[in-house]
Simulated assay, not measured.
Amino acid sequence: MPNSRSRQQGFSLIELVIVIVILGLLAATAIPRFLNVTDDAEDASLDGVAGGLATAVGFVRAQWEVDGRNNTNVVLDGTTISLDDRFGFPTSLTSGTAIVSVTGMSNDSCQEVFQSVLQSAPRNVVFNTDARSARYTVRVGNGQGGTVVGNDGTNVGGVDLCLYHQVASLTLNQNNGIPSPAPSLTAPSGAKGITYNPATGQVITFEVP
């Protein structure tokens, strides 16, 4: 009987091309879906932080109401929080006798509000520092909160706004980790974040068009 030999045969060039085309089609279908899932997760996270911030701000206002509307600070979970007694919403941590008004906010005071009223606040840094290990940047929008009527009936103009940008939606400088361009209400395109108005207590999520 003739000797039988096992024969080894590889893929032909046509078969390899067909496999590559199929893999390409699968990748083209799967990647956009994966990106959508990532965007949805980031949006859900943003909404969760905004909801937590709004709830905490409401707690501060409620305690201020209980205390008789005439105090310039309240104690929330053992932390003394400063507020403008014309409005009753948090403006900073209490530091000595210094009281921060809704027209005198700073990057630091906006960061203090974010970190002090939220339980387990997401990692955050001021917008012009290295943000590679943070989830949010913090910046004050001087005078961007409009005019609000205080509890004494007077119009208070030039109210400041606190801006909290989601780092995942920003472009960071590869060398120093600083967002570029600097995040604001109008830049960069596609940036997502949260605004907090210390005169109205309003917390809103946004996306720069």
Rank of each mutant, 00 (worst) to 15 (best):
Asn3Phe: 13
Arg5Ala: 12
Arg5Ser: 11
Gln8Asn: 13
Gly10Phe: 07
Ser12Asp: 15
Glu15Asn: 07
Leu16Arg: 04
Val21Phe: 10
Ile22Leu: 15
Ile22Pro: 06
Ile22Gly: 12
Leu23Gln: 15
Leu23Ile: 10
Ile31Gly: 00
Phe34Val: 06
Leu35Thr: 11
Asn36Val: 08
Asn36Thr: 13
Val37Trp: 14
Thr38Glu: 11
Glu42Val: 14
Leu46Thr: 08
Asp47Ala: 14
Gly48Thr: 09
Val49Trp: 00
Ala54Lys: 10
Val57Asn: 00
Val57Leu: 01
Gly58Asp: 03
Gly58Leu: 07
Gly58Tyr: 09
Phe59Pro: 00
Gln63His: 11
Val66Cys: 13
Val66Gln: 12
Asn73Val: 05
Val74Arg: 03
Val75Gly: 10
Gly78Asp: 10
Thr79Ala: 15
Ile81Gln: 01
Pro90Cys: 08
Thr94Ala: 09
Ser95Gln: 11
Gly96Trp: 07
Ala98Ser: 15
Gly104Asp: 11
Ser106Lys: 03
Asn107Cys: 06
Gln115Tyr: 03
Ser116Asn: 11
Val117Phe: 10
Leu118Asn: 05
Gln119Phe: 11
Ser120Trp: 10
Ser120Asp: 15
Ser120Pro: 03
Ala121His: 14
Pro122Arg: 08
Pro122Asp: 14
Val126Ser: 14
Phe127Leu: 06
Phe127Arg: 05
Ala131Thr: 01
Arg132Gly: 11
Ala134Arg: 00
Ala134Leu: 07
Val138Thr: 12
Val138Met: 14
Val138Tyr: 05
Arg139His: 12
Arg139Gly: 15
Val140Gln: 12
Val149Arg: 14
Val149Asp: 08
Gly150Pro: 10
Asn151Thr: 13
Asp152Arg: 07
Gly153Tyr: 13
Thr154Ala: 11
Gly157Thr: 08
His165Thr: 11
Gln166Ala: 06
Gln166Lys: 07
Ser169Leu: 04
Leu170Glu: 00
Leu172Glu: 04
Leu172Met: 12
Asn175Lys: 02
Asn175Arg: 13
Pro179Phe: 02
Pro179Trp: 00
Ala182Asn: 07
Pro183Arg: 00
Ala187Glu: 13
Gly193Asp: 03
Gly193Glu: 01
Gly193Lys: 00
Ile194Thr: 02
Thr195Ser: 14
Asn197Thr: 04
Asn197Gln: 02
Ala199Tyr: 03
Gln202Asn: 08
Glu207Trp: 03
